[in-house]
């Protein structure tokens, strides 16, 4: 899983560098259209993902203590945070698409939509992994001496969080 996580991080690094260097050749355009983004939703989604990560940490601690149902409940709480993130992101996307904005509108929106949609898909994958881990926990697949699956799912979720921690300031704020 760590190899997979590093591969994902490298892909995002290429995306981030591409955005930053593309911006350096179109500073005025990127600064102008960055103002159209909803920073309130971006910041709220950062807090939501950070809180989801805290819940995942608490799930790992619970299974280490042998508290299987508590572990499952923290994972369900993290899934709730993931759902909230997706809901806010859909509201944000709907607003942009409603204004007729698309990948071909300009290079800023091309990067904004690509980057955030790529991350959106990773949140969905992270939620699928957490849901599978929660279901397996419910079935009694993990205990205080066997919880590698919980740690693996947790690591993927934290990777999704880490990427957003870079993405939000880079795309929504830095100018």
């Amino acid at each position: 899983m760590w190899i997979f996580i590093l591969a994902e991080l490298l892909v995002f690094a290429i995306f981030f560098a591409s955005y930053a260097f593309a911006r350096s050749y179109n500073v005025e355009l990127f600064n102008e259209y960055q103002q159209t983004l909803n920073r309130d939703i971006g910041a709220a989604n950062t807090v939501i993902l950070i809180t989801g990560s805290l819940f995942v940490v608490l799930a790992v601690r619970a299974i280490r203590d042998g508290k299987v149902m508590l572990c499952r409940n923290w994972l369900l709480a993290a899934l709730g945070m993931g759902s909230l993130f997706l809901t806010l992101k859909i509201i944000e996307f709907a607003d942009k698409f409603g204004q007729g904005i698309s990948l071909s509108t300009n290079s800023f929106y091309m990067f904004y939509l690509s980057l955030t949609f790529f991350h959106f898909m990773h949140v969905i994958l992270g939620m699928v992994i957490l849901a599978a881990v929660a279901w397996k926990a419910q079935q009694g697949a993990y205990c205080m001496i066997n919880y590698t699956g919980v740690e693996t799912g947790a690591s993927y979720w934290h990777m999704v969080d880490l990427v957003w921690i870079v993405l939000f300031p880079l795309v929504y704020v830095i100018r």
């Binding site: 590093l6 690094a13 560098a17 930053a20 260097f21 911006r23 350096s24 870079v166």
Partner: peptide, 21 residues
């Protein structure tokens, strides 16, 4: 080292790009 290295690499690339711009 690898994951922290990723963070340092990304930060440096962003800074370099903004310096270029």
């Amino acid at each position: 080292v690898l994951v922290h290295g990723w963070l340092i690499l990304v930060s440096c690339l962003i800074f370099l790009a903004y310096w270029v711009g």
